[in-house]
Computed example of a mutant assay.
Amino acid sequence: MNKFNIEKSLPFSFSNTTLLTMLGLLLIAMLSMSHAHSAWFERLIPKGETYTVEAVDRDVAFVIDDFIYDARQFCYMAVGDRVVFFEGRYGIDYRATVYNLDANERCELLLRDRVEG
């Protein structure tokens, strides 16, 4: 009976340390690709299509360029974060989904009103 022994056919062998190092490097590569993907995505957004979070009230209400939006679920946005309207139109549609370019997260919002002042 002809048995094939894989250990003898490889010109090298992996130790546990080498395997863990390779897995660690793979994880770092995957995380850096996510950051690179974000930069690539930002280049696709036309100028003037990003909006800034001006005020936050307990992660449930946000002022985005003079419009008040209520979160449909908790959203973690901070003052100064840049957002893009992913679904719905800024200041027009009652329901909208924004993508936070700084936190790389989506948030579903409801348009409440325009800021008075």
Rank of each mutant, 00 (worst) to 15 (best):
Y76T: 10
L27A: 15
S13K: 14
I92V: 15
E116R: 07
I68M: 01
F74L: 14
F67W: 13
I64F: 01
W40V: 12
Q73M: 10
R72P: 00
V83W: 00
F4Q: 08
G91A: 11
F86H: 12
S15I: 01
Y94H: 12
R112Q: 13
L109H: 02
K3S: 13
P11Y: 04
E54N: 07
Y94G: 08
A103C: 03
N100Q: 03
E42G: 02
C75R: 01
R89G: 08
A78R: 06
P11R: 06
L110M: 08
D93A: 12
F62T: 02
T17M: 04
V115G: 00
R114W: 00
A71S: 11
R95T: 10
D81E: 05
S38C: 08
R72G: 06
E116H: 09
A61H: 05
L27H: 09
I6Y: 06
M1T: 13
A29T: 14
H37A: 14
G80V: 10
L27R: 11
R112I: 11
V63K: 05
A39K: 10
M77W: 00
L31W: 04
A61G: 03
S13I: 09
G117I: 07
Q73V: 09
F4D: 09
S9A: 15
Y69W: 05
E105I: 13
E108T: 12
V98W: 00
F74H: 12
L10E: 13
Y69H: 03
F4K: 08
R95I: 06
V83T: 08
A71H: 00
L19K: 11
R58E: 14
Y51K: 10
T52M: 13
F4A: 08
M77G: 01
V115N: 02
L20Q: 12
R89S: 15
A103E: 08
D59F: 10
I64Y: 02
H35W: 07
H37V: 05
L20G: 03
T52E: 14
L101M: 11
E87P: 00
F14K: 06
I64M: 02
I64S: 01
D81H: 08
V60A: 09
G24S: 14
T17N: 08
A61V: 07
I45Y: 03
S15F: 00
D59Q: 11
R95M: 12
G80Q: 06
L25R: 11
T21L: 12
N16H: 07
N2E: 14
E116F: 05
L31Q: 13
H37K: 09
M1W: 04
L111M: 10
S38M: 15
V115L: 08
V56W: 00
N104K: 11
V63S: 03
V79E: 14
F86C: 07
M77Q: 03
T97P: 01
P11F: 04
F62W: 02
I28R: 07
E105M: 09
